[in-house]
């Protein structure tokens, strides 16, 4: 369970003057901090800015970029835009599931290291099929390259 630092939330709220119309940047900053939106943090924000839980939940669930579920240390986005799709991004994703032991619908791998997200287009079609790991772009992925990448990340964690 992620512990929420309410002082930090206060500072974010202060920055935006507890303004209801700034709810999206407020959420973005919280997410930047925790990689997801902890329920306790959202409830705190709701009370402070005078919105109800239902309304904040509505906003948080509307945008794909917001997550209410805890994420792994490495967030891997696999592009499935048209260019990546025809260049077999599905195979890359399949390999990713296999090596991390995850299945579609899982938010986080059992070891807490990985989160897999399938995204529509990362805007780098010339590098298809493309993935990002915590924002770092990995071009022209193949299942083998993906397996090697995960191994490297695990190795880095161990040492």
């Amino acid at each position: 369970m992620t512990k929420v630092d309410f002082k930090l939330i206060d500072s974010i709220l202060e920055k935006y003057g507890c303004d209801k119309s700034k709810i999206i940047p407020i959420m973005q900053e919280i997410q930047a901090e925790y990689k997801f939106l902890p329920e306790a943090a959202l409830m705190y924000v709701a009370d402070k800015i005078g919105e109800t839980y239902a309304e904040l939940y509505g906003v948080a669930t509307f945008y794909k970029d917001f997550s209410l579920n805890e994420k792994g240390k490495y967030v891997i986005k696999v592009c499935n835009g048209t260019a990546c799709h025809v260049r077999k991004s599905d195979d890359v994703q399949e390999a990713l599931y296999e090596i991390t032991g995850m299945k579609p619908g899982d938010y986080i791998s059992a070891d807490g290291l990985f989160t897999i997200e399938r995204v529509a287009c990362l805007g780098a079609c010339g590098l298809a099929p493309v993935c990002t790991v915590n924002g770092v772009v990995h071009p022209q992925m193949t299942p083998d390259k993906m397996r090697a990448l995960i191994m490297d990340l695990r190795e880095a964690e161990r040492s």
């Binding site: 709701a46 839980y53 239902a54 309304e55 904040l56 509505g58």
Partner: peptide
């Protein structure tokens, strides 16, 4: 002005829901 329910999620997965998917009894 109670706002106990709102539409959550998007597109074909939209549902009417209380905050954080709670039950009505646990809402306002």
């Amino acid at each position: 002005n109670v706002r106990a329910i709102d539409i959550a999620n998007r597109g074909s997965s939209s549902i009417v829901s209380c905050g954080f998917g709670r039950k009505l009894a646990d809402s306002d």
